[in-house]
Write a protein that binds this DNA or RNA. Structure first.
Lengths: 298, 298
DNA sequence: TTTATCAATAGATAATATCTATAACGATGG
DNA sequence: CCATCGTTATAGATATTATCTATTGATAAA
């Protein structure tokens, strides 16, 4: 088999045009280099160089061998650089459902990254479907998302929560804890375009002959929440979303719920990566109290 | 530096999950394989495997090293296969102007390929412009084409020839050696769409108030010649085209000429390839008598 | 506790990369 | 024509390393 030192000798000759100069370049004596090239040529069954008393020229085979040699040595250097550069860095690729407030995981991650040395987290934010796709493709290792019985993946339940109304705390309806759907008619409404129950919500209001008035459409839940606080309009959101100036109340009949948990990819991971994920799951469960305020809202 | 035998040991372990099985697979003893992996890990500064008493698992670094190892060994096998498969095959990439009959080069190539061992010829047929492009891009080594003073390439003149009329030998005008353009009016005409003087020919007839009647349009000169022989129509062609049943005559004023020769690419080639091309040029010149019938037609 | 299995280590050996010394060859200048 | 110079190839010796056998150490299973 071709040896890598032979490739280095070969390319040194190509670059210098001389066995003697090439030998100096790769720090061996000229007979050593000559013998190395002889072994390479014997192995390949072809002359790679035409020797003259003045210069060395590539043969047809030698010409075709040059890109191969360069590619192999490039790949070797790349491999060494890759493994050497990161040392013991550990990578966790985390998916996060975009209708879960970033605050939920901020506390967990702040502490987890402090406790685990050399940790790098790649975060992916997406819809429920986007996250399921990425888990299926092995592009993320684990995700904080809605648990569904149809998922054939390893799931760790964390908490359940309902959906409710968010309105400015100076809003007339803010004095109540529960309102009838009819009280919402004509209400300026903010739509969260990426909500996973958007179509169910639309059907709910239609069924109750309630036509809210659309005043803002956004994909960013935090921006929706801010506009609620500003009195631009009201919206429906999962219970865990809170902000100063915002009152969270319930609407009779609007009984949607969801269960949030961690879902692992089905891809087989290295032992080290599996251990890290198990470590993350345990850590998240044990730090659950940090987020149970979102679970029991009544 | 990484040694290739270490890559083979590494991938054998990945595939089998065991040092002992891997050693058997690559035909060394288990301590040999163990030592090889130790050297690789020392060189890279990272553990590649976590050892247990039951199975061996990849570490994070090991996981990332797998594609590198596979790629390198793949490139090595590719290089060996490429050089070993062709042995001492010599490649000549020849361009051929499509308005030069294949017969012209058939005799040259038949003899040349017999005389040169291990020769493979890649033939490219195209218009004058296409051939110039390919020469400029180094995609062909040499071409048999029209010589132009504007070409800044190495040219070897071979012969000069004119253009004339080709018509069926039972055609009334076939009795003459020279005809006036006016005698061609209303004549059924075959157009060779890739002729390098197509526009000049068109202007010539227009200037002489001659309007031939188009009956066939083709890119294939040999097919045009066959249809002439069949009496479908007449055409204009370089003088060297001949066929049984076809009479070649001249038209007064239709004085176009071209010089044919070999043109080398400007790309720098290997010594072996350069030698082959010089050999081809010498051979073609020395066999020129085989095609001079096309040069002196009167 | 004993046994079996697997990987790591120690020391010996075989194979090979590399060294020094020199031969062989071709180009150049007198 | 001959001497000289520069370059590559060969021969034999040496240094280095891949591989061997023998054995130890660790762990799981009976």
């Amino acid at each position: 088999m071709i040896e890598n030192y032979q490739l280095r000798y070969f390319l040194a000759i190509v670059e210098t045009g001389s066995f003697t100069k090439a030998a100096k370049r790769v720090f061996v004596t000229q007979p050593t280099l000559s013998a190395g090239i002889k072994k390479l040529e014997t192995n390949l069954g072809s002359k790679l160089f035409d020797r003259t008393s003045k210069r060395v020229f590539l043969t047809e085979s030698g010409t075709r061998f040059v890109p191969h040699a360069k590619s192999i040595l490039y790949q070797l250097n790349l491999a060494e650089a890759d493994i050497k550069s990161t040392g013991r860095t550990q990578l966790l690729r985390l998916g996060l459902l975009m209708t879960i407030s970033a605050d939920i995981v901020r506390n967990i991650l702040t502490t987890f990254t402090r406790d685990v040395s050399g940790l790098v987290i790649e975060l992916f934010e997406g819809t429920e479907q986007e996250i399921q796709n990425r888990l299926g493709e092995g592009k993320i290792d684990i995700a904080l998302t809605i648990l569904r019985p149809t998922l054939k993946l390893d799931m760790t339940p964390l908490y359940k929560e309902g959906y409710g109304i968010a309105l400015a705390d100076h809003h007339p309806l803010a004095k109540k804890e529960n309102i009838h759907p009819a009280e919402f008619a004509g209400e300026p409404t903010i739509v969260r375009s990426r909500c996973e129950i958007l179509s169910e919500t639309s059907r709910f209001f239609t069924d109750h002959n309630v036509r809210p008035r659309l005043v803002f459409n956004t994909a960013q839940d935090e921006r929706a929440l801010s506009m609620v606080a500003a009195g631009v309009g009201s919206t429906t959101m999962p219970d865990h979303y809170k902000m100063d100036g915002v009152k969270r109340i319930k609407m009779i009949g609007y009984d949607f719920e969801r269960e949030i948990g961690l879902v692992k990819t089905s891809y087989q991971l290295s032992e080290e990566r599996s251990n890290l994920i198990d470590q993350f799951i345990s850590f998240t469960k044990s730090h659950l109290p940090e987020i149970t305020y979102a679970r029991n809202n009544q």
